[in-house]
Write a protein that binds this DNA or RNA. Structure first.
Lengths: 202, 202
DNA sequence: TTGCGAACAAACTAGTTGGTCTGTTTATGA
DNA sequence: TCATAAACAGACCAACTAGTTTGTTCGCAA
């Protein structure tokens, strides 16, 4: 008599799938390998998820999304002076992310590059998550205006788009050759860029 | 009696493979589909390329590399004032790239994100091509110094790294939802950033 | 207590995929 | 001209892969 725990079974499948997708991409992820990692069988898999694609959606929403939220969205709300504090947040990133991130990059960006043009379901979910991410940055810059940290005429949304772009680009570049200079370059130059958002009459 | 042309046969295979890899990724590319597109048979394929992987390498070096060179490296050599001319080069990009690029993004970046952590052969070739690309930007910024376009104390390599990062990030973001604002944001903010490279006593 | 659906196990299937093997035709150099 | 290798055609194969089916067991509500 084995004790059953449907929620935990589902969660185990999700975590193993997330791990495999992060390492090999969605198309590279093998259902059989997820089963091997969890010690479960086909029956369990297709009971909880109807198909490989639906599993992918679930991983995106239940694994990747919370990760982005805790790693980025939540810390951003605590930033007072974007120009000064955001680069500091970047510095702490190395310690805040799990080791697998160094090797395989940002799971959201990976899925974005692989699946956005392949599957509409992925595309929509990914686009929404990026929008949410940009929103968080926009709020951060907007909130910096009343306190005089950011110029009033700055287009916060445009700046937010740019910052997210730099982040994804940087993580992508780092994935290629893991060069420390690459990360350092983005860190220093984003800081220089942010200085341009300061009010003129300092 | 059919006329044989080994070089052309090889080239046809390369072009079809490039097209398929660009559309579906390397792992998503099917040898059979390349054969169908070219009207050739397995014999021809495995005569010219020993394996799918070797074909991938050949596509990278004989299709992607020349594309990067003609689209970026070559135009960069003609730029005099980086701060002013580079954003103009970006503006002309829309007309200079083939339509498939809009849909599937940068083939080099796609392969980078998909294969860098999967296969050492890909990783090394991709890293080298990125280095070459960064080199070209570095030269551009360095050459802008004697003429007073760029501050003498600017670290050209760091700036070059940053610019390539922004480009790849931007193309990647554009791939997700094809938003015009995304492209416009990067275009305008990269221009603002480049202004910080100007000498102070203008 | 019992009935019934949820939660699995496990064998099976049909289609796909990269790659091989054998044979045939074309070019090329001696 | 003729031998030899290059340049293919095309059938074949073994491994893999997502998904199905059937059957069994567990948990909960009535």
């Amino acid at each position: 008599m084995t004790i059953r725990n449907p929620q935990q079974t589902r969660e185990r499948l999700l975590q193993a799938a997330f791990q495999e997708i992060h390492a090999h991409g969605f198309q590279g992820m093998r259902v059989d390998e997820v089963l091997r990692l969890t010690g479960l069988q086909k029956g369990a898999f297709y009971h909880h998820f109807g198909s490989k694609t639906k599993l992918g959606y679930a991983v995106l929403e239940e694994q990747v999304r919370p990760l982005i939220e805790s790693l980025w969205l939540e810390p951003l709300t605590k930033i007072e002076d974007p120009v000064c504090d955001f680069p500091l947040l970047l510095d702490s990133l190395g310690e805040r992310i799990p080791p697998t991130m160094h090797e395989h990059g940002c799971p959201l960006n990976n899925l974005a590059q692989e699946m956005a043009s392949q599957d509409e379901g992925f595309q929509e979910r990914i686009a929404q998550m990026f929008t949410q991410w940009i929103d968080a940055f926009e709020v951060m810059f907007e909130q910096g205006k009343p306190d005089g940290y950011i110029r009033k005429d700055v287009d916060s949304r445009t700046v937010a788009r740019f910052v997210v772009t730099v982040l994804e680009g940087c993580i992508g570049m780092y994935k290629v050759d893991h060069a420390q200079e690459q990360w350092a370059a983005c860190r220093s130059q984003i800081s220089i860029y942010l200085q341009t958002l300061r009010p003129v009459n300092n």
